[in-house]
Amino acid sequence: VAKRKCPDHGLDLSTYCQEDRQLICVLCPVIGAHQGHQLSTLDEA
């Protein structure tokens, strides 16, 4: 199974943004649109 990539940063989608209910990469909460959002690992989601 191919991993999905972040459209903004090109990295694997490895984190779940609880606020926006979507998968994001590790850079999205650091330099992207998900700064300050509640996050979960994929195992927790």
Results as ranks from 00 to 15, higher is better:
44 E>G: 12
4 R>N: 15
43 D>I: 06
39 L>A: 11
27 L>G: 04
15 T>M: 07
4 R>A: 08
10 G>E: 08
20 D>C: 09
40 S>V: 07
7 P>V: 04
32 G>T: 03
30 V>Q: 14
38 Q>M: 12
2 A>G: 10
9 H>K: 00
6 C>N: 01
33 A>V: 09
39 L>R: 11
2 A>C: 14
14 S>T: 13
30 V>P: 03
6 C>S: 00
21 R>F: 06
16 Y>N: 05
24 I>V: 09
37 H>T: 02
26 V>F: 09
35 Q>F: 05
44 E>L: 07
34 H>K: 02
37 H>S: 02
30 V>L: 08
23 L>R: 12
19 E>W: 05
22 Q>E: 15
37 H>I: 00
41 T>M: 08
36 G>W: 03
42 L>W: 10
18 Q>E: 13
42 L>M: 12
38 Q>I: 09
18 Q>L: 08
19 E>Q: 08
1 V>Y: 04
44 E>K: 09
45 A>S: 04
31 I>A: 13
30 V>G: 05
11 L>D: 04
14 S>E: 14
16 Y>T: 14
36 G>E: 09
29 P>G: 07
21 R>I: 03
2 A>S: 14
41 T>R: 13
34 H>T: 02
24 I>L: 08
16 Y>F: 08
41 T>H: 07
11 L>S: 04
45 A>C: 09
26 V>H: 11
27 L>N: 15
28 C>H: 00
24 I>F: 05
8 D>N: 09
17 C>E: 02
26 V>C: 12
36 G>P: 02
41 T>Y: 07
10 G>Y: 06
8 D>A: 13
38 Q>A: 10
5 K>T: 06
3 K>D: 14
4 R>G: 09
35 Q>E: 11
34 H>V: 01
13 L>A: 10
25 C>Q: 02
40 S>I: 08
42 L>Y: 13
16 Y>A: 04
16 Y>D: 04
2 A>V: 10
31 I>V: 14
32 G>H: 03
34 H>L: 00
19 E>V: 08
37 H>N: 02
19 E>D: 14
3 K>Q: 10
35 Q>M: 11
27 L>E: 15
38 Q>T: 14
25 C>H: 01
27 L>W: 04
11 L>C: 12
4 R>V: 07
7 P>H: 05
42 L>A: 14
9 H>M: 00
43 D>H: 09
27 L>C: 03
18 Q>G: 06
34 H>A: 02
15 T>R: 09
1 V>E: 09
22 Q>D: 11
13 L>G: 03
23 L>V: 09
21 R>Y: 12
17 C>H: 01
12 D>P: 10
2 A>H: 14
24 I>E: 03
20 D>N: 03
43 D>W: 04
23 L>G: 12
7 P>K: 03
28 C>M: 00
4 R>F: 10
24 I>M: 10
27 L>V: 05
31 I>D: 15
20 D>V: 02
7 P>C: 05
38 Q>S: 13
4 R>P: 03
29 P>M: 10
34 H>G: 02
35 Q>S: 08
20 D>G: 03
24 I>Y: 04
26 V>Q: 15
3 K>P: 07
28 C>W: 00
15 T>L: 04
